[in-house]
Simulated scan of single mutants.
Amino acid sequence: MKVLNILSDALFKLEKLIAILLMSVILVSIVLGVVFRYFINSPLTWTDELAIYMLIWLTFVGGSMSVKNGKAASLDLVFEKVNVLWQRIFLIVGYTFVTVFSTIVTYMAVKWISNPAVLTQISPGLKISMFLPYLSIPFGLFCLTIHAVNHLVQSFKFEGTKVHVEGGE
């Protein structure tokens, strides 16, 4: 499915940009916090909270990116020792479980953040809606689902004597 591969690649490029932005905001936030606390003696109350929320976003976006690149935690020791048929079976079963799990959790996360009680929560330091930090969960898992489905489809393709699931760039 060429469309799925194009969608997965486009999402990966978006995730890379988001990850760069998130890491930059974390760096600036922490540096500002340190400078204001220790050099100006007037601590900023929101810098730590901002860095934490950006780290949460980075966790979900980075987790999705690791699935796209094939760098997520796996049992390579076992995988490399079995024949091609078993490698294919492991990939299909693994990506099926990842797809089902991430789809269910994405659905539950969207349902959860759509709750009026969540929508009205305000963060203590930044005074922003908690919807924004919580949005990282369905966004990251939606991207992960797209990447996992793409890999699942690719694992049915036969490429010579070796099983290979194409990663990101």
Rank of each mutant, 00 (worst) to 15 (best):
L55E: 02
L55I: 09
I56Y: 00
W57V: 02
L58A: 14
T59H: 09
T59V: 13
T59C: 14
F60V: 06
F60C: 02
F60D: 05
F60T: 01
G62Y: 00
G62P: 14
G62E: 03
G63V: 05
G63R: 01
S64H: 05
M65N: 06
M65T: 11
M65I: 08
K68E: 07
K68Y: 02
N69F: 01
N69R: 15
G70S: 15
G70Y: 04
A72S: 14
A73E: 13
A73L: 14
S74G: 15
S74K: 13
L75Q: 06
D76C: 04
L77W: 14
V78Q: 06
K81H: 06
K81R: 15
V82M: 09
V82T: 05
V82I: 13
N83I: 09
N83E: 09
V84I: 08
W86C: 06
R88L: 07
I89V: 15
I89K: 01
L91H: 11
L91S: 15
L91W: 00
I92D: 02
I92Y: 02
I92E: 11
I92Q: 03
V93L: 15
V93S: 14
G94I: 09
T96L: 15
F97A: 14
V98D: 07
V98T: 12
V98E: 10
T99S: 15
V100Y: 01
F101Y: 13
S102R: 10
I104L: 14
T106I: 02
Y107W: 14
M108H: 14
M108F: 15
A109C: 05
A109G: 11
K111Y: 12
K111W: 08
K111I: 08
W112E: 13
W112G: 10
I113S: 03
S114T: 11
N115Y: 03
N115F: 10
P116K: 07
A117T: 09
L119W: 03
Q121P: 07
Q121G: 05
I122F: 00
S123T: 13
S123Q: 07
G125M: 14
G125Y: 05
G125H: 12
L126F: 04
L126V: 09
L126I: 03
M130C: 11
M130W: 10
M130V: 08
F131R: 05
F131N: 05
F131Q: 03
L132K: 07
L132G: 04
P133F: 00
L135A: 15
L135M: 12
F139D: 04
G140R: 04
L141V: 03
F142L: 13
C143F: 07
C143R: 01
C143W: 05
C143S: 14
L144P: 01
T145Q: 00
I146N: 10
H147S: 09
A148G: 08
